[in-house]
Design a protein around this nucleic acid. Structure first.
Lengths: 214, 214
DNA sequence: ACGAAAGCGGACCGCCCGGTCACCTTGAGG
DNA sequence: CCTCAAGGTGACCGGGCGGTCCGCTTTCGT
């Protein structure tokens, strides 16, 4: 979607190093979070520090490239689940995949869960994710598998929350997030008459603009 | 509990500066998180950087002093609620107070939600909190106001999760956490027959020791 | 084979951090 | 009022960071 044959370096060693760099950065960011140093990433990739900045103008760009990839994967997962037979099961399956993504990657949590995301492409990707998840949620709502006032943005936000709930247990119980996903899913499907206060905006990226907007 | 008249400096300017320092640090940590610099804190307190280290041997100690205070407040809140008439309402009220604490203080979130808390006194305080919340939860369970497999540690972990769920909305909708607290409370009270997988340990501090322990 | 352009790398820069220290100020007991 | 220890301070240190730059190496079209 972003590029097919146009962008990227042409020399063979450059494309190889770019691949090495992206892989090493993905691994390092996932393990250590967004604060991992460029030096560490370069070392893991087996290249010099200068090479990192030849391929990516700043650390921010490198991080964005990787986070965008993960967001695209999540969007694709959600899109595929739109055509599933059982909307409630589809929503549950998406949320499990989403939490798994958060649990696997510390930097992903930090970027997506950040109050105001800097990089415009990342913001746009999060909005697209919220859109497709809104469809997923709407189908579940219609079937009564999700409470009537639940939005797609709610669901995306909850993914981050579930991961953070289980985070202190991650080292000892890597699968503990299932426990809190199940608990939240009971809240998501709750059929109490009460409706939730403070409805969130449709898109996360609008949250720090004029709140009166639609 | 920790000290009455024994510790602390004796000279009047020293006790005044200590107070100034604690207040400034609490404010700065709350606003900026645990990564705020010592220089910033000293500036807010109107003292020199050296003074900070005269009163607290390291940044870690200063942070721990403040976090300990907040944990003690939460423990006291929970203890008082133990004698309330309605156990279900008491648990809900505690969770609202807990999430409010997390929302108000960035550094508190970071320390309590950290996978392995360094400072032994903080670990011990978190354990005490889990203990008293376990009692609170047990009373709610007995009344059917909480699902039978919910533990006190679960409740404490959920506080952090709820705050992180609402975090991206915090700037635009400071009260948005109520929405997710209500949703989670529906999950907490859910009366589905299914029980949650992966029961957590009683104490968070045991999570990175031998998991076979009791 | 060759030369130029693209790519590589690590020394280097400026910045900011937590923490230290030697020197100066201040306050309380006599 | 005087003394002196307790307390205050900011220059300073070592270290790590993101980012730059220029001399060297590699690739590739011709």
């Amino acid at each position: 979607m972003t590029e097919t044959t146009s962008a990227g370096p042409s020399r063979s060693d450059a494309v190889r190093n770019r691949r090495l760099l992206l892989d090493a950065a993905a691994e390092a960011f996932a393990e250590c979070g967004a604060d991992v140093s460029i030096g560490e990433i370069a070392q893991r990739a087996g290249v010099g520090k200068g090479t990192v900045f030849r391929h990516f103008s700043s650390k921010e760009e490198l991080l964005a490239a990787i986070v965008l990839g993960m967001l695209d994967e999540l969007i694709e997962t959600a899109t595929k689940l739109l055509t599933a037979g059982d909307p409630g099961a589809a929503l549950r399956e998406f949320m499990a995949a989403g939490v798994r993504s958060f649990v696997r990657d510390r930097a992903f949590c930090e970027v997506v869960g950040r109050p105001s995301v800097r990089h415009p492409q990342v913001r746009e990707a999060i909005d697209r994710l919220c859109d497709v998840v809104e469809e997923l949620t709407a189908r579940a709502r219609q079937e009564g598998a999700a409470r009537p006032d639940l939005t797609g943005t709610d669901v995306v936000l909850l993914l981050s929350g579930i991961q953070h709930t289980a985070a202190p247990l991650l080292a000892a119980e890597p699968q503990a997030w299932h426990r809190y996903l199940d608990l939240v899913l009971d809240g998501v499907a709750a059929s109490t008459g009460r409706s939730l206060p403070y409805p969130p905006p449709r898109h996360l990226s609008l949250t720090d603009l004029n709140p009166g907007e639609r």
